[in-house]
């Protein structure tokens, strides 16, 4: 530092600079277009290379099966003390997959994190530099997370169902997968959980913040119904069925209750809410500065 470097000495790179030459450029870095399937592969690598992914999904599956065992054991245990009306209405299928109520928390949070984890760490700028058209990233994230959630939630629902039925069989009140409406309850629960996950992804993209995304998802799913209950009961009956979570959960019960939409109508409405959020997320992702 003692001698002032003259600008003419820009070639003082020396041997170290030369030796780097051979390795910087490489034939292995062949040119390739960014395609949707490549972005999908990239998002799959990202998804499976985070510890939080496994932890959260494990919690979701374990909670579903654990709660199934607990709820069905309790039902079987108390069966002889239950009033007739309650016995008549007992939903053996629905009871065994009640754990989804907890699992949706984990899946909703993970859905949000799929996107906001990139914003909070700055990763998003690397991602969007690699895929400057941006929307393929959103589609890929939804496909990866939606696909994984659908498969995993289906497996978890099935395991919960069989675990629950084995508990209920002590009182011979179990049902079977071939019974009317039961497959719809079991796989409908998986579909509901998947939609919650996708709702999380979309809300994450809209809010770009983990706390904001989580608050939005659970505000819409859980707080909205609570707020509604503070309103006159006629409102509750008229509006209640159309709230996102109430609509979606119509899929998860065997017998449709009064003031509840038909299973697939409700599911369709919930999917509609998710779709609208996705569209908003896509427009914002495309328009906003990263």
């Amino acid at each position: 530092m003692s001698s002032r470097p003259s600008p003419a000495t820009t070639l003082d790179g020396g041997p170290a600079g030369r030796s780097a030459d051979s390795t910087v450029s490489a034939p292995t870095a062949r040119s390739g277009k960014v395609t949707q399937s490549r972005v999908l592969n990239s998002e799959w690598i990202k998804f499976r290379s985070l510890r939080s992914t496994y932890l959260t999904l494990l919690i979701a599956v374990a909670a579903m099966i654990g709660i199934a065992l607990l709820a069905c054991w309790a039902a079987a245990n108390r069966w002889n003390h239950l009033p007739m009306a309650e016995r008549a209405n007992f939903d053996a299928a629905g009871r065994s997959i009640d754990g989804y109520v907890f699992a949706q928390l984990a899946i909703g949070v993970l859905g949000v994190l799929v996107i906001t984890g990139e914003y909070s760490t700055g990763m998003i700028r690397a991602t969007l530099s690699a895929v400057p058209r941006r929307l393929p990233v959103l589609w890929a994230k939804m496909a990866v997370f939606g696909g994984v959630t659908l498969v995993l939630a289906s497996v978890a629902s099935l395991l919960s169902f069989f675990a629950g039925q084995s508990m209920l069989s002590s009182q011979h009140i179990q049902t079977t997968l071939s019974a009317s409406g039961v497959p719809r309850v079991v796989f409908g629960t998986a579909i509901y959980l998947t939609l919650v996950g996708l709702f999380g992804v979309a809300m994450g993209a809209v809010t770009r913040s983990t706390p904001g995304g989580i608050a939005s998802v659970f505000g819409m799913l859980f707080v909205l119904p609570l707020i509604l209950h503070a309103l006159p009961s006629s409102w509750v009956d008229n509006i209640g069925p159309y709230l996102p979570s109430n609509a979606g959960q119509a899929l998860t019960v065997l017998h449709t209750e009064p003031h509840q939409l038909a299973p697939w109508t409700g599911a369709g409405l919930f999917a509609g809410y998710v779709a609208v959020t996705v569209v908003i997320a896509a427009v914002l992702l495309k328009r906003r500065d990263a």
Partner: peptide, 28 residues
């Protein structure tokens, strides 16, 4: 910015995910 990296991911997987978007092989 140096920290455009997800903190929970390894350096290798970070690069692998970026490389995948344009079909760059693992060897690169």
């Amino acid at each position: 910015e140096a920290r455009a990296i997800h903190t929970g991911r390894t350096a290798f997987n970070h690069l692998l995910a970026l490389a995948a978007t344009t079909g760059i092989p693992r060897s690169r």
